[in-house]
Simulated assay, not measured.
Amino acid sequence: MDQGWAAIAGAGVGVLGAVMTGLVAAAGLRRQSRDQLAGTHAQWRRQLRRDAYAAFLAAAHRFQTEARALSPALGSDQSSLVERGLQVLGSAEGLLLERAQDVDLEGPDFMVQAMHPMLATAKQIVVDATIWLELAGRSDPGTAQIHMRFAEHREDLANQIAVFRDAARQDLQAP
């Protein structure tokens, strides 16, 4: 009878060992699965941020191009060209604001902070062109000063785009 009990005890220990091994293996697989899911999620979030940054930069470059195209008209007395250019510039600003919403949603705080000066400068560029148009309508000589301010704001925007681009690279290269 002792041999029977020994066999039963041995089998019980074997079953218990197998169960314990299975539990440890299951915990390891669960941890591995959770880590893999976290890595996949982080990669997905990084891709969303990259897409938002790229779309915002593309909109910023379009705005910058339209502002550059409008600048010669501000140096002349061609109000009709400025008026048409201002409509195109307003459209480019609208696109920039749309793309900014994605950065605001997907990006970390430091990216949103890098974006806001660009939006303020873009708005100021549109305001400058609007003021120029109003002054030109009254034949006010202040148009030259507004044109200079417009050029300064365009330069500010170029610098702010570079700051944003560098911040985006930093964010996307972070582990």
Rank of each mutant, 00 (worst) to 15 (best):
25 A>L: 15
10 G>H: 05
23 L>E: 11
54 A>T: 14
76 S>N: 11
65 T>Y: 06
96 L>D: 01
86 L>G: 03
114 A>G: 02
102 D>M: 12
127 V>E: 14
66 E>C: 05
29 L>F: 12
166 D>F: 15
33 S>Y: 14
68 R>M: 03
156 D>N: 09
128 D>C: 13
98 E>Q: 07
11 A>S: 13
18 A>G: 15
79 S>R: 15
77 D>Y: 04
50 R>T: 12
89 L>F: 09
14 G>E: 07
68 R>V: 05
170 Q>K: 10
94 G>S: 07
24 V>M: 14
20 M>H: 10
161 I>A: 02
137 G>L: 09
136 A>V: 07
91 S>R: 08
160 Q>K: 14
26 A>L: 13
92 A>C: 05
156 D>L: 11
89 L>A: 08
12 G>T: 14
10 G>Q: 08
68 R>E: 08
82 V>W: 00
11 A>H: 06
110 F>P: 00
42 A>H: 10
19 V>T: 10
132 W>Y: 09
139 S>P: 03
115 M>T: 01
19 V>N: 07
1 M>P: 04
85 G>L: 02
74 L>G: 14
72 P>G: 04
65 T>M: 06
8 I>E: 15
66 E>L: 08
164 F>H: 03
25 A>E: 13
18 A>Y: 15
55 A>L: 07
69 A>M: 03
146 I>K: 01
64 Q>E: 13
54 A>C: 08
82 V>N: 00
138 R>S: 14
74 L>D: 02
102 D>K: 12
142 G>P: 00
128 D>M: 07
162 A>K: 08
28 G>S: 09
72 P>D: 02
14 G>P: 06
135 L>I: 04
69 A>I: 01
82 V>M: 05
105 L>V: 04
9 A>S: 13
58 A>E: 12
31 R>Y: 11
52 A>T: 07
129 A>Q: 04
69 A>T: 02
100 A>P: 02
163 V>K: 04
8 I>N: 10
8 I>G: 06
104 D>H: 02
